[in-house]
Amino acid sequence: MSMTKRSIWPTLGFLLLLLVVPLGFYFYDNAFYLDLATRLVILGIAATSLNLVLGYGGLISFGHAAYIGIGAYAVGIPVYHEFYGGFDSIASTNGLFQIAIAVGIATLFALITGAISLRTKGVYFIMITMAFAQMAYYFFLSLDEYGGDDGLVIEVRSEMPFMDMDSPVQLFLLCWMSLVVAMLIVRTIVHSRFGMVLQGAKGNNERMVTLGYNTYVYRLTAYVISGAMCGYAGALMGNFSSFISPAMMEWGRSGELMFMVILGGAATTLGPVLGSAAFILLEEIFSSVTIYWHLPFGLLLIGVVLFARGGLTGMFRGRGN
């Protein structure tokens, strides 16, 4: 953690680029890139939320894909009941209601699993968060009513006040604004007294405990905030893909989120977004060249870990290696 003020212009510039370029493509009749950018921005929100615990808190959560899944199912399940009956109390196409459920359940899941996971540390924590996400995966897999393994098509997108989620441009703008807000939230938290304690516990937990801070509570709070944000990203993801399936929360997805954070640069504001941008673009490029694209992609991942510490932001700042 460095206290020196870094220039904010690269972050603003990149966000502006992320806004203008896809819209530009869209208005020149190339809708594909807007789709790509929407997915990128949603994953950027998820990566930003993960960065709060992983980057600033030093808590290596290997289960954040579960929150994306929870958020998406919170959109899909109410719509399903609205269309096919049953479970009247949650049947709804109201977006605000769905988002409230998404964030609520994600918060609850983070609170329960976090309370247990945070009792452990080190490699135990990594594996437990992963196992809990896998638990969510198997839970949704076993729900035959919502398609089980095959997943479920969401019949209509969320109904939101003042906007139409069926319009790709409006959906993208909502996601982009959400990303900006998410980054602002994390930045504010990190620079607050709360964030200082969180980062202090990452550096030396014993010292913070000795200073009288109950770091467990700080960490749990951060974990819950992160889970709630990621659940919100999941609700957007459900609207974007109009499809839910347990595959959204497979542990590989959680690994990809971690990779985005590390690739871009953990514990930086822009890092996770830069990472998800690089991730999505590389995935797109590699997979268009060969069906064996996981091979170069995997090698790249290994290479980044071995040789490019600090990620992309680290390289740009000359802190690489």
């Binding site: 290596i60 490699v123 990594i126 990779f259 590390i262 996981h294 992609f297 995997g298 991942l301 980044v304």
Partner: peptide, 19 residues
């Protein structure tokens, strides 16, 4: 290295070996 690096690198290795 720390466990995070190990997790990420071996995650990459899974992609490589599966492919």
């Amino acid at each position: 290295r720390d466990h995070l690096d190990q997790v990420l690198a071996t995650f990459g290795l899974i992609l490589v070996l599966d492919t």
